[in-house]
Design a protein around this nucleic acid. Structure first.
Lengths: 326, 326
DNA sequence: GTGAAAGCGCTAACAA
DNA sequence: TTGTTAGCGCTTTCAC
């Protein structure tokens, strides 16, 4: 690969001139500009970003660290971040942690070594280790979907309010024995749960049952099965996330239970099958793309002004009715 | 951020010694090793990968360029590539092209500037521009899902054979007026179409109708609607990809058409809603994770031996029966 | 065993 | 308007 030296030699000028001309900095005579351009074209020269990065101490790389890019929510988020980056000539490292704090740690470390300009992360744990690593390396960080500490910029939805909205809708359907399946050790899930409880309280109710479980599909299915097997089963179930809902709905589906008549069902997130079942799934939809875009913008702001005080942006979850509630 | 200089000063040794010790190269006395380690720990030193990269001329970064990471097939593929990379301490740039050759060009260019170690790409076009760019920059390239030229290593499924297998299954259901909705300008789609035609030919049949359309959801829906509106509608439809099938099924769903009785339906890829509809969707499933892993391995081989002749690896598509065919 | 020094490709301060 | 040069942080010869 041709380097700036080759171009300089070819054009009969110094490397500084080539650099200036390419960066459009300082004055360059039309004649020289011409010569350099010709040399660049002839050699197919491309500036080496690695060298630029080392020299400029500024990387033009963003890191996105999430549990799993296959999760449609994160997929959407990723696209939004990537679109943003693309417009500005940035690149994006995508890292999946599978909610494994070891993997998270590994990537945080790696991204620090890579000198990335900033990190957008959905932190898997509130573990102090991770946090320390983030703080220590002075890399700008924005957390999404979850809040790790008030030291970082964060973009999330109004989980509690959205959960209230959804729960009120369940109550409006006449359901009274309302159970919840919620993710374990999850900031988001606990915010949502408190919204559910608050809404139920306004009707003088308590949750019929609360099942707390790791937020994966099989666990969601198992949880729903145990609810259905109960001597006193619920008449409606709310799941705190798409993966849990997917498993839960599978159980409902397999047992041929009538939704919404026998059982009301609703969840957070908008899984891809939500419109393929009958009736469709009533959900709180997160504005994933907007979250991603907002996070990216916030990150750029922090990169520019490292000392601004951290902000917390809450976006609105949207209730989408499709029929899985009476 | 502490640099190797700081560590050297702190430990009272030269930077060469620190470098050697960290890379575990050459002999180092236990005493020095101790001192360096202490300094490293004290300063929280992390080697700067950007500098390493410039010096070693070897980047430890892989690029993954696909149309859309939100497509579950590419999501799975991405995870497989990322898992592979993670194990080896590599990072992955993820780039989405939306099948836009301008965007593809942009990223190819950018990845060359980034000096990535290799590129895994699902090329959106056979456009010569793109190809040239790939060839010119001597970066190792593996194409997945599609073949751009026999100059590159490729990993894909046996599209034609799989299509035959699926079509024979359709025929076995007693369907005879079999239509196909296939992606336009797509290498993969045309391979699949030829398999469909070949299988039909063995039964002395021709496709009842072939609709060629950009492989997106709305187009799939429109195509299916036009088939259903036809005076002589098909009794079975095969879609060449998940996005088309998603749109197509939406049309079927909205019109309350009986599957598999009134209409047999099958497709390539395994959309997430495949098990949520009744009956489930019969598909040719691509081993996405295996494709990703294989591609990553192939890429590493080429990085190590740039001159080995390009190989084409065909993996088997898997017929999964779920009831959408009689 | 260890250190000095060159150089990866680039930008920017300073000189001319 | 252009060139010379230092130096970003690192690895790797080559001396000692």
């Amino acid at each position: 690969m041709a380097s700036i030296k080759d171009v300089a030699r070819e054009a009969g000028v110094s490397i500084a001139t080539v650099s200036r001309m390419l960066a459009n900095k300082g004055y360059i005579s039309d004649d020289t500009r011409q010569k350099v351009q010709t040399a660049v074209d002839k050699l197919g020269y491309r500036p080496n970003r690695v060298a630029q990065r080392l020299r400029e101490q500024q990387s033009r790389i963003l890191a996105l660290i999430v549990s799993d890019i296959q999760n449609p929510f994160f997929g959407q988020l990723c696209r939004a971040v990537e679109n943003f980056a693309q417009k500005r000539g940035l690149c994006v490292f995508v890292c999946n942690t599978d909610e494994d704090s070891g993997r998270e740690q590994h990537y945080l470390e790696l991204m620090a070594q890579e000198q990335v300009a900033g990190i957008i992360i959905s932190p898997s744990s509130k573990g102090s280790q991770q946090l320390e690593a983030l703080q220590k390396s002075k890399i700008p960080v924005v957390t999404v979907d979850r809040r790790a500490s008030d030291q970082f910029d964060s973009v999330l939805i109004d989980n509690t309010e959205s959960a209230q909205k959804l729960t009120l809708r369940v109550l409006a359907g006449g359901y009274r024995r309302i159970a919840a399946i919620v993710g374990a050790n999850s900031f988001t899930a606990s915010e949502r749960l408190s919204g559910i409880e608050a809404a139920l309280a306004t009707a003088g109710l308590k949750p019929h049952k609360i099942l707390t479980t790791p937020a994966f599909e099989p666990e969601g299915q198992a949880a729903m099965e145990s609810l259905l097997d109960d001597a006193d089963p619920p008449d409606a179930v709310i799941c705190s996330s798409a993966l849990l809902a997917t498993g839960a709905y599978r159980a409902i589906h397999q047992r041929n239970i009538q939704v919404p008549e026998t059982l009301g069902f609703a969840c957070f997130d908008d899984p891809p099958w939500a419109t393929f079942i009958r009736p469709g799934l009533t959900v709180i939809q997160q504005p994933a793309a907007l979250i991603g875009e907002t996070a990216a913008e916030l990150l750029m702001k922090r990169i520019e002004q490292p000392d601004r005080s951290p902000s917390l942006i809450r976006l609105q979850g949207k209730l989408i009715e499709r029929g899985s509630l009476r």
